[in-house]
Structures are given as C-alpha cells and as structure tokens.
Amino acid sequence: MHESLSFLAATYVGQPIWLWLAFLAFIGLLLWIDLGVVNNKDGVVSAKKSAGMWASFSAIAVAFGAYVYFVYEPDPLYYMSPDNLNQQAVLQYFTGYLLETALAFDNIFVIGMIFTFFAVPREYQHRVLFWGIMGAIVFRAIFISLGAAIVNEFTWVLFIFAAFLIYTGWKMIFGGDHEMDLNKNPVLKFLRKRMNITDTIENHNFFVKKPDPKGSGRLVLFATPLFLALVMVEVVDVIFAVDSVPAIFAVTKDPFIVYTSNIFAILGLRSMYFMLAEAVARFKYLKYGLSMVLVLIGVKIIWNFGLYKGWKDMTGEALVPYLEPQWSLIATLGLIGGSMAYSWIKTRGEQNPA
C-alpha cells in the first residue's frame, strides 16, 4: 500500500502531487458546499447573500495566503532571489489574486450580456455560473501548465508577455469599447448548425428529450438555450485567460502560486456577479486602473528580467535596482482601488451611468 501511494510524493512543476490533489479536493469541497448546501435550490441569489458568499471566499483566500507564508515550501527555481522565499511567494500570491479578481470583474459585463441575450431567468443564472466555474478550473489548469512549461524552457517568452500586456493595457485605454456580437460568434453558429436546440429554456435543464424533428418517432436529445449560455460563458473565460495567464506569469513564475491565485479569484466571480450586477456601470473607470496595472507589470518584466538580470549576467553588477514583489502589490492595490473609488464617487447620483 505504501509503495502504491509513493507517486504522491513525486513533484509536478515544483510541488508534490499530493499538494496539488489536496488543493483540488479543498476547492471541490467548497464548490459542493456552495451548490449542494448553500444554494441547492433554484432561486434568485440576493445581493446580501452574494456579499456574504464573496466575503467568505475572500476570507478563505486570505487564509490561504497565511498558509503560503508560514507552511508553503517555494521552489527556488521560480524565484529570482534565494532570500525570503516565503515572503516573496505570499506577496506574489496576493498580487496575483488582486490582479485576477480585477480581471474577473471585467467578465461581469460580458456575462450579464450573455444572460440577457439568451433570456436566462435570474433563478437559473447561479447554476450556469457554477458549471462555468467548473470548466474554468479545468481550462486554467491546462493553460497554466502549458504556460509554466514554456516559460521555464524559454525565459525570453516573458518579454513577449510583457509586450502583450503593455499593448493590451494601451488598447484598453485608447481602443474604445466594443461589445461582443453573439449572433456572429463562430462557436454559437457551429452549435446551432450541428445540434438540436429548443426555442425556450426548459426549467434548469441543459438538455431535454423531445420528439425527433425528422419524424422518426423517437425521442432525441435537444440542447436548451441554457446550455448555449454555459458554452458562451466558457468561451468568454478562455478569451479572458489570454490576458490573465500572461499577466499572472508576469507577477510570478511559480505555477502553484499562479494556479491557486487564479482559482480563488474565479471562485469569487460568481458571488461578485450577483453582488454587483445591478451596480456594475458604477465602476466604468475601473478599466483605466486595470490597464495601468497591465502596463506596469509589463514594464516590470522588462526591468527585472532585462535591465536588472540581463546586465548583471554580463558585468556582475546590476544596471538598475531589483523591483521587489511588494511594489507590484502596492501598485496593484493603489491603481485598482483608486479607480474603483473614483468611479463610485464620479457616478454618484447618476441613475443610468454610461
């Protein structure tokens, strides 16, 4: 029995497999409590209840930060300095968590549009978001594993990430707002062409059986608009992952810190949606703070991995001082918190902020 479990001690991207499995089991427990106990019946999730759920998930995320600081054993391979590894890890974890939470906030706009497009009743929206998050956990694991393999093999890829983040931040400021036209989405077009789809939502079901439209007399499987909404939520998460995964790897190269900060931010997304869906327009200036964070993180990569590390490798002396992780955390807090506060103050008294 002992030998059969020896694989648990093997490492995967710097951490033992048992730690990865324990984390996934813990997340599974939280999801079971959420859907199986707290929200086990269809119904409208109130803003007050959502605020309590979001506060609970945030508290758990903070508690996990304490684990990172006091218990976690960082792999020095993923850190530029061998000193104070746990301090570096916890600062990077909270920076990543705040950044991913802010990026997830952007999803609220698009998710609301998807629910409106498919006319998803509020009492079924929680179910769609729950399964959407389940998919996001899987997809983020795939993206982060690929990202870790690429970054560790080719460190220069970080400079591509830096350029992409600077470009994305610049585009968010000056590129204007472009709404997604779901009718033209290729994934939705494909599904409508290949699947039987009901005209209306059938309770909380993603699939139902109905008579074959070809007249065979058999019952065949039909997807409902609720399933299409779920697929589009997953598509949106994949699109946003293109921004968020490079952003978090720009903060830390430690795959465990990358994944855990991502997942805790995603867990809070569902509660955040129901808590802020009605007031989301009040945060219209958030994108400017977030865009500046992306630009600064891109610049930080060039600074630390180019000017600092590159010059040090050639001469033995650094051209510029090393930017410690706490400066990323302070900048992220200041820019995101400041843009949210400014938005709330600026739109105060507006009935329908643009």
Rank of each mutant, 00 (worst) to 15 (best):
I239N: 01
F240Y: 10
F240D: 02
A241S: 14
A241N: 10
V242Y: 07
V242S: 12
V242G: 07
V242F: 14
V242C: 09
D243S: 12
V245H: 05
V245W: 01
P246H: 08
A247M: 08
A247N: 06
A247F: 10
I248G: 00
V251I: 15
V251E: 09
V251C: 05
K253H: 04
D254Y: 04
D254R: 02
D254F: 09
P255S: 05
V258M: 03
Y259S: 04
T260P: 01
T260S: 00
T260N: 00
T260Q: 05
S261Q: 11
N262G: 12
N262L: 09
I263D: 10
F264W: 06
A265C: 03
A265H: 07
I266E: 01
L267Y: 06
L267F: 14
G268A: 15
G268I: 05
G268W: 08
L269W: 08
L269R: 03
R270Q: 09
S271T: 08
M272R: 02
M272K: 02
F274A: 03
F274T: 09
M275E: 12
A277E: 15
A277T: 11
A277D: 09
E278V: 04
E278S: 08
E278L: 08
A279G: 11
A279T: 15
V280N: 06
F283I: 05
F283H: 09
K284M: 14
K284A: 14
K284I: 13
Y285I: 04
L286G: 15
L286K: 09
G289C: 03
G289K: 03
G289S: 00
L290K: 04
L290M: 13
S291V: 08
S291A: 15
M292L: 14
M292Q: 11
V293C: 02
V293M: 05
V293H: 01
L294F: 01
V295E: 08
V295F: 13
I297E: 07
I297A: 05
I297S: 06
G298R: 07
G298Y: 13
G298V: 06
G298C: 11
V299R: 08
V299F: 15
K300G: 00
I301C: 00
W303A: 01
W303D: 00
N304T: 10
N304M: 04
N304L: 04
F305Q: 08
F305R: 00
G306D: 14
G306I: 01
L307W: 13
G310F: 11
G310I: 12
G310N: 09
K312Y: 12
K312A: 12
D313K: 13
M314H: 05
M314I: 07
T315M: 14
G316E: 06
G316R: 05
G316Q: 09
E317I: 08
L319D: 13
V320C: 03
V320W: 10
Y322F: 15
Y322L: 03
Q326M: 13
S328Q: 03
